[in-house]
């Protein structure tokens, strides 16, 4: 009996908590909180980064108007992103490597005040 090809075991998916507020929730079925599972690696076997997460969100959660969420391959300017309650600008922004149980918050500042 031939032994099976030494396939790399599929890594356990990552659980990520998402929160949309400041008006962002309107693009997401008016729901503020989601818990999702996302593969730990991309199809190129590289670790899943925040860059991949936002496109995953666009393709899987976003209900309308993707241009209000993503603009030119990043989050639209004017949307604040926090990773585990820290400004994403301190965490490498799009290059941040997603960890299991991360909480990522998107807050729109574009709504009236």
């Amino acid at each position: 009996m031939a032994s099976p090809a030494p396939a790399t075991p599929a890594p356990t998916p990552l659980k990520v908590n998402l929160e949309f507020s400041g008006g962002m929730e309107l693009l997401f079925n008016n729901t503020k909180n989601y818990t999702i599972e996302i593969p730990a690696t991309t199809s190129e076997h590289t670790p899943t980064l925040l860059r991949h997460l936002i496109f995953w969100i666009r393709d899987n959660l976003l209900k309308e108007k993707p241009e209000l969420f993503i603009s030119a391959d990043t989050v639209r300017p004017g949307i604040l992103v926090l990773i585990n309650d820290t400004d994403w600008e301190l965490e490498g922004e799009l290059e941040y490597q997603i960890q299991n149980n991360d909480t990522v918050v998107f807050i729109s500042t574009l709504h009236g005040g």
């Binding site: 604040l80 926090l82 918050v105 807050i107 500042t109 005040g113």
Partner: peptide
């Protein structure tokens, strides 16, 4: 505005 929103958050 960024700081106002962060403060509120």
């Amino acid at each position: 505005e960024k700081e106002i929103v962060m403060y509120a958050y």
